[in-house]
């Protein structure tokens, strides 16, 4: 590490912000991917990987991703719930990699829910 100046302290803080948003809270968007047996069988794993890639590509630091079990609507898996701060959560169903990428851009980044994939408004407890 080179000798730091006060400006560089700030830079380090910015760089590590994502890590600490995750630990301290204070995020902009929360995504819950259903990872029950039904979800995984329907391809939730791939949806999750695609989502994680999108987040990494976008370089954002205020989105957190959680997993949950089966939501009780196994026929529409893989499902995910997306909740932006100050907005009601939106449940999406029948997801695949392309759809989650589109939702990521439109809803999570853009702030506009993608109605064609949405099932309902509402969330479920994660534990």
């Amino acid at each position: 590490m080179t000798k730091l100046t006060i400006a560089e302290l700030q830079r380090i803080q910015e760089e590590n912000k994502a890590t600490f948003t995750l630990r301290k809270g204070g995020y902009k968007a929360k995504v819950v991917v259903h990872m029950g047996t039904c979800g995984i069988a329907a391809g939730a794993r791939n949806v999750m990987t695609a989502l994680m890639n999108e987040i990494a590509l976008a370089g954002t630091n205020d989105i957190i991703v959680k997993t949950s079990g089966c939501g009780g609507l196994c026929a529409r898996e893989p499902m995910a719930v997306i909740e932006l701060v100050d907005q009601p959560p939106v449940i999406y169903g029948d997801l695949n990699e392309e759809k989650i990428k589109e939702i990521f851009k439109e809803h999570i980044i853009g702030g506009n829910p993608v109605e064609k994939y949405a099932l309902a408004l509402g969330s479920e407890a994660i534990y």
């Binding site: 990872m35 997993t67 079990g69």
Partner: peptide
């Protein structure tokens, strides 16, 4: 575990597989 902020105590090596499956894969405490 963040971001869920779930607290676990008394971890043992034997419990780890079940813990990982339940929490990190299926998202249940």
């Amino acid at each position: 575990v963040h971001p869920e902020e779930i607290f676990y105590e008394g971890l043992t090596v034997e419990d780890v597989p079940a813990l990982v499956e339940e929490h990190f894969l299926k998202g249940r405490a």
